[in-house]
Design a protein around this nucleic acid. Structure first.
Length: 194
DNA sequence: CATGCGATCCGCT
DNA sequence: GCGGATCGCATGC
């Protein structure tokens, strides 16, 4: 009904640096949702990307708009956007208020609530439950209404937590995918193995 | 396994 | 009006 007692909400200070610094540190942390009935669905983050305000591929590159306003809030704010007419993608804001930086969560390994993920993902094979940014949101039931939630607040229905597993010491670094600008920035990180 | 394409809406130009 | 921080299925090796 609740996450294991050993899991700790990630402190906001851990998200207060620039996105390219925070992103690899989020590998191996847990994205945890708690439903109205107390049901917990969680996955371990294994792939992330960084986006900053001076980054042509970032939603914040052309300044603040109603859509991206959450990116300018404090670190730990959740920014979920809708794209391609059918997919949602979840980001965790980093840096300082007004920066317009965030880390896109690109892949999770299911940890808890796998049955709920299977239902939301309509019986897709387990390996495909949350191995993409749109799939994460579908598996965890995230949409734009969750934008603005604080993943560092122990009372939030969407949280970033750690079970003590450290980030990988040797993350695989590469260029971001699905973008057409600034493809040269090596701002994608993956945990080894899968 | 790699590549290609259609689906389907919203935000910004 | 255009194109997107994607996904899933079909096709062809």
């Amino acid at each position: 009904m609740t996450p294991p007692a050993a899991w700790r909400t990630v402190p906001r200070a851990r998200l207060s640096a620039d996105a390219p610094e925070v992103a690899p540190r989020l590998l191996h942390t847990l994205l945890v949702t708690t439903g109205p009935t107390g049901e917990v669905v969680a996955g371990r983050i294994v792939e992330v990307e960084a986006y900053t305000a001076d980054d042509p591929a970032s939603h914040s590159f052309r300044g603040r708009t109603p859509r991206n306003a959450a990116m300018y809030e404090r670190a730990g704010t959740l920014y979920v956007y809708f794209t391609y007419g059918m997919h949602h993608c979840a980001n965790v804001v980093t840096g300082r208020v007004g920066d317009g930086q965030a880390v896109l969560l690109r892949a999770l390994v299911p940890v808890t609530g796998i049955d709920a993920m299977r239902v939301r993902r309509r019986g897709r094979p387990d390996r495909a439950l949350a191995d993409g940014p749109g799939k994460i949101c579908q598996a965890l039931g995230l949409d734009r209404s969750h934008t603005g939630l604080d993943v560092c607040d122990p009372g939030s229905p969407v949280r970033l937590m750690t079970d003590g597993t450290p980030p990988p010491s040797d993350p695989v670094v590469g260029s971001r995918v699905g973008i057409s600008a600034a493809t040269d920035r090596p701002w994608r990180w993956r945990a080894p193995v899968r």
